[in-house]
Design a protein around this nucleic acid. Structure first.
Length: 724
DNA sequence: AGCACGCCGACT
DNA sequence: GTCGGCGTGCTC
C-alpha cells in the first residue's frame, strides 16, 4: 500500500504519512487529509511504501484536489532548502508559499475566462444599429473588433465593464476564448542608446551560460532600470520568464505601470500584499502556467512557480524589506540567488548602495561586479552634500539657522525643500559633551546602550555591563548626554518661521490610506507645496522635479548605534534622499545637520564615494569579526516573566556550549527593545566563520531547543539576522 | 496551531 | 450540583 508524505500547516517539524486508496496522488498535489479531529489541506511531498509509523495509526487521504496544477519538484526542493536553512518546519514553509485560496479546502471558484472575443453574431453586428445609449457596450464591441482582449485590458475602457460584458455575453455578441500565449515578437518601447557601461552590463548578463550572480552597482541616475529593461527584452525574445523582485514599497503598481509601458505586448503578473485574494491566485497561476512573462513582486514572489524562468532581478538588493521578520525568516535576495543557481539562470542584484555582503562577494569574485559610474543623462549632476556642525550654529528646536536660511531661499525661488527626519529608533548611547567620549564596550567593537530603568550601560553584543558613570572616564566632565533621540515638532517650528509656506507632512500616519499618498504626490508635482517634512518613505521612489534642497535633521544616532549595520543603512538612506534633490537644470543641495561633520561616513557621502565607505566599513567588520566575515544566527525569546525568558536562553546557551562545535556564543543579552507590550525580550547570538559550520551547529542545536521547557514564552531562531 | 481531556472555583 | 478557567498532551 503506497504511503504519501504530506506537508501540513502545523508548527511541527516533519511530514505526515497517509495511505492512498484508489485515487492516485502525484507529488506536488494538494490533498485533504484528516488531522486530529479536523480535515486539513496539505501538499504531497513524497510517495513511498516505507513508514516509521505503526500501520494502524495511518489514516487514508480524504481527497486529492485537482483544481490547480501540482507544485513542481523544483519548487518543492527550493522550499525544502529554505525550511532546512532557516530552521523552520517544512509544513508551514510549503503552505505559506501558496496563495490563501489554495490553502483552504473550499473548492476554487471557477476562474474567469482569460480572454473575450466577438462571437459570430457579434462580428456581423453593425455598430451603427446598436443602441447608442449603451455606451460602454459599444466601446467593448469596438475594442473587440480589433481582436481578443482579456478582462484587465477591457477594464481600462470603463469602471463598469464587468456587468456590461456580462450583458454582451448573455446577448450572444461576445464569447470566451482561450488566452493566447503570444511568444511572438516583442516590442520594446522608448529604448534609447545605452552608455558604454550600460551596454557592457547588458552584454555580460546576456552572455551568461547557466547560473551567474551579478552585482549591478550604479549611482542614482546611472540608468539601472534601462539595463533591466534591455535584459528583460533579451529574455522575452527567447520566450523565457523574468522574475523582478522589488522592496515592499507602495511603489509596486507604479513600477508595473512603467514596465508595462515599455513592454506593451508582454503579459505581466504582479505578486504583492496589496492584491486581493482572487487577484493573488490568478496572478500566481499565470506565473505557474508560464503565461505571465514578467513576474513583478515583493519578497513573497521569490516562491512563485516559474516554469520558464530565465532571469532574476533583485532591485534595491540592499533593502531591508527583502528579509522576512517572522515565520520563515528568509531573505528573498538570498533565496533568489539559491534559486538562480538551482534553475541555472543568471541573477542581477541592483543597487546604488549595495549591502556590504553583496559588495564583498563581488570583490572576492563570487559575484561579477558591474559598475555604472556615469549618469545616463549627461546633463544631470550629482547633488552637492554639505554638513552643518550643530555645535557651532544657532539651533531652533533641532533645526539649524543655516537650513532655515536655505529653505527661505528656495521659497523665494519657488523651489521645494525636503526636511528629512531620521526617526528610526536607535538605542541611546552615552556621550561626553566635553571630549566626545562614547560608552564603548571594552570587550567588543559595540557601543554600550543606556538603560534608564536601572541606570546601567549594557553591551547588547556580549552582555558586559557597568553602572552609568557620574563623569566622563576620559576627561572627568560630569556632563554626559544620550545621543540619538528623535525629533518632534519640526512642522510647527517651520510653520512659525515661514507662516505663509505650504508645508506637507508625509509619514506612515498621514499616508495610511493609499488615496492620500496619491493626492499628496499630485500636490507636490503641481508645486502646491513649499516644504516637505517626512521620514523614510520619502527617501524612496519618486522624483519631484521642483525639489532642490534636502535637509537631514538628526542622523548621528545611527553612527553610534549598538547595531553594527546602522552606519551601512544610514549611508544607503542618505544617498537615497540625496538622490531626490535636483534635476538637470536645477542642481540639488543636501544639508546634513551633525555634531560630527568630519565623520568618515559624511566625508564619503560628500564625495559620493561608496567604494571608500565600503572599504572602511569592511575593514572594521573584519577587525571586529562581524558579517560578512562571520555568519550569525540569533535565538530570540519573549515572555511575561523576565526570569523565565533568561532561564530559557540560559539553558539554550548551556546546550549550545555542550555541543562543543566551532562556534562563538555571545549573550544572553536584552533585545534592542528590551520590553514591548508587557513582554520581556532577550536574545542569544551564535556566530561561526563559515556558513557550513553555522549550519552544522544549528542542525545539532535545534533538537535541544525543541526539547527545552518553554511554557508561556515564544522563541524563534533567526538565521542571518538583519536586526539586533 | 487547534482541539481535546482534566481537574479546581463561582454561579443558576 | 453544573459552567468554565487554562495547564497538558497529541495530532500521520
Amino acid at each position: 500500500m503506497p504511503i504519501v508524505r504530506v506537508a501540513l500547516d502545523v508548527p511541527l517539524s516533519g511530514l505526515f504519512d497517509y495511505s492512498v486508496s484508489d485515487d492516485p496522488v502525484e507529488i506536488g498535489q494538494r490533498v485533504i487529509v484528516p488531522f486530529g479531529r479536523r480535515q486539513m489541506v496539505g501538499v504531497a511531498m513524497e510517495i513511498t511504501d516505507a513508514t516509521d509509523m505503526a500501520p494502524e495509526r495511518i489514516k487514508p487521504v480524504t481527497q486529492v484536489l485537482h483544481d490547480s496544477a501540482p507544485l513542481s519538484a523544483q519548487l518543492l526542493e527550493l522550499l525544502r532548502f529554505c525550511s532546512d536553512y532557516y530552521r523552520y518546519p517544512i509544513g508551514p514553509t510549503v503552505l505559506a508559499a501558496l496563495p490563501t485560496r489554495l490553502r483552504s479546502d473550499k473548492p476554487l471558484v471557477a476562474k474567469p475566462p482569460e480572454s473575450y472575443r466577438l462571437s459570430a453574431a457579434g462580428s456581423e453586428l453593425d455598430l451603427d444599429s446598436f443602441p447608442k445609449r449603451k455606451v460602454v457596450q459599444r466601446r467593448i464591441l469596438a475594442r473587440l473588433a480589433d481582436g481578443p482582449c482579456n478582462l484587465a485590458q477591457l477594464k481600462s475602457l470603463s469602471a463598469t465593464v464587468g456587468p456590461q460584458l456580462k450583458a454582451l455575453l448573455q446577448d450572444g455578441y461576445v464569447e470566451h476564448c482561450e488566452a493566447e500565449v503570444t511568444v511572438a515578437e516583442h516590442q520594446l518601447v522608448g529604448a534609447h542608446t545605452l552608455t558604454g557601461e550600460q551596454q557592457d552590463a547588458v552584454d555580460a548578463v546576456a552572455a551568461a551560460q547557466g547560473y551567474a550572480c551579478f552585482l549591478l552597482h550604479g549611482i542614482t541616475g546611472s540608468g539601472k532600470t534601462e539595463v533591466y529593461v534591455h535584459l528583460m527584452h533579451h529574455v522575452l525574445q527567447r520566450g523565457g520568464q523574468v522574475l523582478l523582485l522589488v522592496p515592499e514599497i507602495n511603489l509596486t503598481p507604479q513600477l508595473e505601470h512603467y514596465f508595462r509601458s515599455r513592454f506593451p505586448d508582454a503579459s505581466f503578473a504582479s505578486l504583492h500584499s496589496g492584491l486581493s485574494e482572487g487577484e493573488r491566485l490568478h496572478n500566481w497561476q499565470q506565473a505557474q502556467s508560464g503565461a505571465a512573462q514578467i513576474v513583478l513582486g515583493t519578497r513573497l514572489a521569490v516562491f512563485a512557480e516559474l516554469p520558464k524562468l530565465a532571469l532574476i532581478i533583485v532591485d534595491e538588493e540592499h533593502d531591508g524589506s527583502f528579509k522576512q521578520q517572522d515565520g520563515l525568516r528568509y531573505s528573498a535576495r538570498d533565496v533568489a540567488i539559491f534559486r538562480a543557481n538551482q534553475s541555472k539562470v543568471p541573477v542581477v542584484l541592483g543597487s546604488a548602495t549595495p549591502s556590504l555582503e553583496s559588495y564583498h562577494n563581488a570583490q572576492t569574485g563570487r559575484y561579477h561586479m558591474l559598475k555604472l559610474s556615469g549618469r545616463a543623462l549627461a546633463s544631470a549632476t550629482l547633488p552637492s552634500v554639505r554638513c552643518v556642525n550643530t555645535n557651532h550654529t544657532v539651533m531652533h528646536h533641532g533645526i539649524s539657522e543655516n537650513l532655515l536660511r536655505d529653505i527661505e531661499q528656495r521659497i523665494a525661488r519657488q523651489e521645494q525643500s525636503l526636511v528629512f527626519i531620521n526617526r528610526r529608533g536607535y538605542s541611546p548611547v552615552l556621550m561626553c559633551t566635553g571630549c566626545g567620549w562614547l560608552s564603548s564596550c571594552k570587550h567588543c567593537a559595540g557601543k554600550m546602550v543606556l538603560h534608564l530603568n536601572d541606570r546601567r550601560l549594557r553591551c547588547h553584543h556580549c552582555g558586559y555591563q557597568i553602572r552609568v558613570p557620574h563623569a566622563c572616564p576620559d576627561c572627568g566632565n560630569p556632563d554626559l548626554h544620550p545621543v540619538g533621540s528623535g525629533t518632534q515638532r519640526v512642522e510647527e517650528v517651520l510653520q512659525e518661521r515661514f507662516p505663509d509656506a505650504r508645508i506637507l507632512r508625509v509619514d506612515r500616519d498621514s499616508t495610511r490610506n493609499k488615496r492620500a499618498w496619491q493626492t499628496m504626490r499630485d500636490q507636490i508635482h503641481a508645486n502646491e507645496v513649499d516644504i516637505l517634512v517626512g521620514t523614510q518613505m520619502l527617501a524612496k521612489g519618486h522624483d519631484f522635479p521642483a525639489l532642490t534642497l534636502v535637509g537631514v535633521l538628526n542622523p548621528d544616532g545611527a553612527l553610534y548605534s549598538s547595531d553594527f549595520r546602522a552606519a551601512e543603512r544610514l549611508f544607503a538612506q542618505l544617498a537615497q534622499v540625496a538622490g531626490r534633490a535636483g534635476r538637470a537644470d536645477k542642481p540639488g543641495e543636501v544639508l546634513i545637520q551633525t555634531e560630527f561633520p568630519d565623520h568618515p561616513l559624511y566625508r564619503a557621502l560628500q564625495q559620493h564615494d561608496f567604494d571608500g565607505f565600503a572599504a572602511s566599513q569592511l575593514a572594521e567588520r573584519q577587525m571586529a569579526g562581524f558579517p560578512p566575515f562571520m555568519y550569525q544566527a540569533m535565538l530570540r525569546a519573549e515572555g511575561r516573566q523576565e526570569s523565565e525568558v533568561f532561564a530559557f536562553l540560559g539553558h539554550a546557551r548551556a546546550a549550545a556550549v555542550e555541543l562543543q562545535q566551532k562556534v562563538e556564543i555571545l549573550g544572553v543579552v536584552p533585545a534592542a527593545l528590551p520590553r514591548r507590550a508587557n513582554h520581556v525580550r532577550a536574545q542569544l547570538l551564535v556566530q561561526a566563520d563559515t556558513r557550513k559550520a553555522l549550519q552544522q551547529f544549528l542542525r545539532a542545536w535545534q533538537p535541544s531547543l525543541d526539547a527545552l521547557p518553554a511554557q508561556k514564552l515564544r522563541w524563534s531562531l533567526d538565521v542571518d539576522p538583519q536586526e539586533f
